[in-house]
C-alpha cells in the first residue's frame, strides 16, 4: 500500500469519526470507563502481587531439631533437607546463635535471657528456603517426618491464606475486566456498523469501480483503532497522575516491612502501554466484527 493510499485511509477514518459525532463520543466514553477500571484494578493487583511476593520471598522454614540428636544425626538431617528438589538454601543455626539472636531482638529486656547462656533451652535450627514460595507448605510437611526433627515452623495457616486471597482477587479481577472489555468492544462494533450503513452507497460504488476489499475495509479498521486509542488517553493520564501522587504520599509513610509500592518508573509506562494496546485491540476487534457482518465482501 502506498503512502498516499494510507493517507487517504487515515483521512476517511477521521471523517467518519467526525460525522458519527455522538456515537463516536459514546464509544470513546465506554472505552474510557472500561480502561479506567481495568487500569485501576490492574495497578492494585500488581501492587498486591508485589507485596505478596515480597512476603512470600521471606517465608522460611525453621526446622527445630530434637535435643537428643547428636552431631551425626544433625549432619544427616541437613543432607536430607538439601536433597529435596524444591529446597534452595539450608543454613544451620546452633542453639547458641539462636539465643544471641533472641537476646538482640528483645533489646533491653533481652538481658534477662543471658541467664540461660549456661543452660540453653533452645533447639538447634535449620533455616530452609525454597526456590518457589508456593513449595513452602509441601516441603515443610516433608521435613517434619524426618527423624530427630522436633517440629517445623513456617507461619502455618498464614501463608496458605495469603496465597488464597491473592488468587481469589486475581480471578475476580480477570472476570470483571473481561466483561468490561466486551462491553466496550460491542459499543465500538456498533459505531462501526453505523459508519458502514452511512457509507453504504459509497461502498457500493467502490465495489463497482473495482476497489479491492482491503481498500474498502481499511478505513473501518482505522476508525475502530482510533476509538480505542482515543478512549485510552484519559485513563492513562489519570492513572499516571494518581499513581505518582499516591506513590509520593504513601511510600514515605509505610513502616511495615515488606510493604512497598512498585516504583513509578517503569511500572506506569508498562501500564500505559498495556492500556493503549488494549484500547487499540478492542477497537480493531469491534470493527472487525461489524465489517464481517455488514460489509459482505
Amino acid at each position: 500500500m502506498s503512502i498516499r493510499t494510507l493517507r487517504r485511509h487515515f483521512r476517511e477514518s477521521g471523517k467518519s469519526l467526525a460525522r458519527n459525532g455522538w456515537m463516536t463520543f459514546a464509544s470513546i466514553s465506554a472505552v474510557t470507563v472500561t480502561l479506567l477500571l481495568v487500569g485501576v484494578f490492574f495497578v492494585i493487583m500488581m501492587n498486591l502481587n508485589h507485596i505478596a511476593e515480597n512476603i512470600q520471598k521471606d517465608v522460611e522454614i525453621r526446622v527445630h531439631l530434637d535435643p537428643a540428636a547428636d552431631d551425626n544425626n544433625k549432619d544427616l538431617i541437613g543432607q536430607k533437607i538439601e536433597q529435596i528438589s524444591a529446597v534452595d538454601t539450608v543454613a544451620f543455626s546452633p542453639k547458641e546463635k539462636e539465643l544471641t539472636n533472641l537476646i538482640d531482638e528483645m533489646g533491653e529486656d533481652g538481658k534477662t535471657f543471658k541467664l540461660f547462656e549456661q543452660d540453653n533451652p533452645l533447639n538447634d535450627v535449620y533455616v530452609v528456603k525454597t526456590k518457589e514460595p508456593v513449595d513452602v507448605v509441601k516441603t515443610a510437611k516433608q521435613i517434619e517426618k524426618f527423624q530427630y526433627v522436633q517440629n517445623v515452623k513456617y507461619g502455618q495457616g498464614y501463608v496458605e491464606k495469603m496465597f488464597d486471597v491473592v488468587e481469589v482477587a486475581r480471578n475476580i479481577g480477570i472476570v470483571l475486566i473481561l466483561g468490561l472489555l466486551f462491553t466496550a468492544m460491542f459499543l465500538i462494533s456498533n459505531t462501526i456498523k453505523i459508519t458502514i450503513i452511512a457509507r453504504r452507497r459509497e461502498i457500493e460504488i467502490m465495489r463497482l469501480v473495482g476497489a479491492t476489499n482491503s481498500f474498502i475495509r481499511w478505513p473501518f479498521f482505522l476508525e475502530g483503532a482510533w476509538l480505542g486509542i482515543l478512549g485510552a488517553i484519559i485513563p492513562i493520564a489519570f492513572i499516571a497522575a494518581a499513581y505518582s501522587y499516591i506513590y509520593d504520599f504513601v511510600s514515605p509513610r509505610i513502616q511495615i516491612k515488606f510493604v512497598e509500592l512498585l516504583e513509578f518508573n517503569p511500572f506506569i509506562w508498562q501500564v500505559s502501554l498495556i492500556l493503549l494496546l488494549l484500547g487499540a485491540v478492542i477497537g480493531v476487534w469491534g470493527s472487525l466484527m461489524s465489517v464481517r457482518k455488514f460489509l459482505k465482501i
Partner: peptide, 14 residues
C-alpha cells in the same frame, strides 16, 4: 475468486 472480482471490474464500466 471473490478476491479477484475487484481487479476484473476495473475493466468494466457500469
Amino acid at each position: 475468486r471473490n478476491t479477484k472480482v475487484p481487479l476484473f471490474r476495473r475493466n468494466l464500466g457500469v
